[in-house]
Design a protein around this nucleic acid. Structure first.
Lengths: 137, 137
DNA sequence: CCCCTTGGTTACTTTGAGGTAATCGATTAC
DNA sequence: GTAATCGATTACCTCAAAGTAACCAAGGGG
């Protein structure tokens, strides 16, 4: 996010087979952006395809600050996941929408979101059990 | 990861419909753990189903420090994603393997990994174009 | 005249995830 | 006896991500 200028760690890895397990593979930075704190939620909101305004995004993605929302959207724009559309009215209107590339992240990210929502109960039970067992010995 | 003791933000949200967009929904912590820096890679390595030793994990997931690998595995164990199996030999042998719950994350996380690896080229081109356009004005 | 709006930006501070280096215990190999 | 092994743990440090608060322009509504 702050790495608006991050360079490819391995410049001569031009188009070799990508592998996130490889320390120097640039696909790692791609995976990290995809899993940025707010990215899955933003993609969820933009998934239907209608352009969404900054303010509406801010309301829907509960808890995100304007600064971080701007940063995350910029990073997504830079990676080619979203398009930023400005209407220079007063007050200004700015819409965001997924590019084709961005749309192709919807399925994987939605699957992740669904997993979290479907299994939150079991995970919480596991955590309680683990903590109880640790407390005992 | 440091939140080994994190409490549910909203204690009376016992088993309501989960929604990651909701600030107080515990599914958010689940999504965050799933997208922890090393979790997708660890799940990738454990996906085949064979138990994997700590040291092998350390070698395969390039760049992870022993401290952070331990923390991440503990967190995954607490959430019920992996089982830790100790053989008290000398030197000690510790294997990790996915639980059924952990195995159910393989598909979604592998999809994410595949996306990153398949699209790293296009993302890098987009970044270069964006940076060039910013440089011009 | 003042305040409201939108979509930010800026400066500053805080947090916490992650990294580094040293150490451990118990045993076998050299 | 010294080194190596394994799976950590501990203390400490760093730095990027995230949060907070103030502010901005350019008008419209009251």
């Amino acid at each position: 996010m702050t790495d608006v200028m991050d360079k490819t760690v391995n410049p001569n890895a031009a188009e070799l087979p990508a592998d996130v397990l490889n320390q120097d593979c640039p696909s790692r930075t791609v995976l990290r952006h995809l899993t940025d704190r707010w990215t899955p939620m933003i993609v969820t909101v933009l998934a239907p395809g209608q352009p969404v305004r900054f303010t509406e995004l801010r309301r829907t993605v509960q808890g995100v600050s304007p600064k971080v929302l701007t940063e995350t959207l910029r990073s997504m724009e830079r990676d080619g996941l979203v398009t930023r559309r400005v209407t220079p009215s007063v007050p200004p209107r700015v819409d965001y929408l997924l590019t084709d590339l961005g749309a192709s992240t919807v399925e994987p990210l939605a699957a992740l979101r669904r997993w979290a929502e479907a299994n939150v109960g079991e995970v919480q039970r596991n955590r309680r059990r683990y903590d109880r067992e640790q407390a005992e010995g």
